[in-house]
């Protein structure tokens, strides 16, 4: 079973909404529709196999768990991962006859998602570059100094014209690749046996890739070597003491509360000294 034209068009539309400078906006588009986990549900609905969609989405989500939009910089974007990677992974899992809930299926999904993810970066730069043309129109209106024109042009530039960028760099690539997907995964099955080096490597890569996602998170939170002890504490909670994630999170919040109190106590001392003349509305003021 392949992907029909209608299904490919729907996937293409969601790719437009979900990408990083996406037409669904940051919160709803990129952070919701663009997440592979949510995308798994949507792709599953479109392709008529919700369960496989979500399993594949969850597996790919793990690799891209850290894909937040950092304030200063822009990292890879998820349109290709979610709306090209997940459909291809579903096709591949079906073609290989794998059980969708198996480790092997997750590994295959993660590898395919990451392979397609590099494409996402290209599409991202394409979209952002074409947007410069629309911004040029905006600047021209601003320079012209005619308020009626500005009032019409700016919303046009911000909300409407970028659709053209997305038709070029999100919609068309998604539709084309998804339609070609069936023959691609068919070829893969014919030429790459499961016990050959290529497929073994592919599945191994799938099991290694989540480490990259976690490491990106570590990059954001680990500031000094001792932070690795905190990380190891959480690791041990789950690996050795058998806590699930929710329990681990509660224990972590408990320690964070203690930490917050200690930090506040540290702050209070110089603040109390300075509060003598400043009108700092500190309740502890009468203590000095």
């Amino acid at each position: 079973m392949g992907i029909s034209m209608v299904q490919a068009i729907l996937l293409g539309l969601f790719a437009c909404l979900a990408s990083l400078p996406g037409m669904g906006g940051t919160t709803v588009g990129n952070y919701t529709l663009g997440r592979p986990l949510v995308g798994g549900l949507i792709v599953g609905l479109i392709l008529g196999d919700i369960q496989t969609g979500i399993i594949v989405g969850a597996a790919i989500q793990l690799v891209y768990i850290a894909l937040v939009t950092p304030g200063g910089t822009v990292s890879a974007d998820v349109r290709a991962v979610t709306y090209i990677g997940i459909p291809l992974a579903i096709l591949a899992i079906r073609a290989q006859g794998l059980d969708p809930s198996s480790e092997a299926a997750s590994g295959l999904a993660a590898s395919l998602g990451a392979a397609v993810g590099t494409l996402g970066t290209v599409l991202f730069y394409g979209t952002a570059t074409l947007n410069l043309v629309w911004q040029g129109i905006g600047w021209k209106a601003m320079d012209g100094g005619n308020w009626a024109t500005i009032k019409k042009t700016i919303p046009m530039v911000d909300f409407v014209l970028p659709w053209i960028s997305h038709i070029a760099f999100s919609f068309i690539p998604t539709v084309v690749i998804c339609l070609a997907g069936e023959s691609m995964v068919g070829l893969m099955k014919d030429y790459l046996p499961m016990d050959g080096v290529a497929m073994k490597t592919l599945f191994t890569v799938g099991s290694l890739l989540p480490a990259v996602g976690i490491a990106i998170l570590c990059k954001q939170v680990v500031q000094k070597p001792l932070d690795w002890v905190t990380f190891a504490f959480g690791f041990i909670l789950a690996a050795v003491m058998g806590c699930n994630l929710i329990c681990s999170a509660v224990i972590a919040v408990f320690f964070a509360l203690i930490n917050f109190k200690i930090e506040q106590l540290k702050l209070m001392r110089p603040a109390a000294a300075a509060a003598g003349d400043a009108d700092f509305d500190d309740e502890e003021e009468e203590d000095i």
Binding site: I214, V221, T230, F231, G234, A239, S248, A249
Partner: peptide
């Protein structure tokens, strides 16, 4: 701090 610990748990 919460983030670091939970990330550790996720890694496991």
């Amino acid at each position: 701090l919460v983030g670091t610990m939970v990330i550790g748990a996720v890694a496991a």
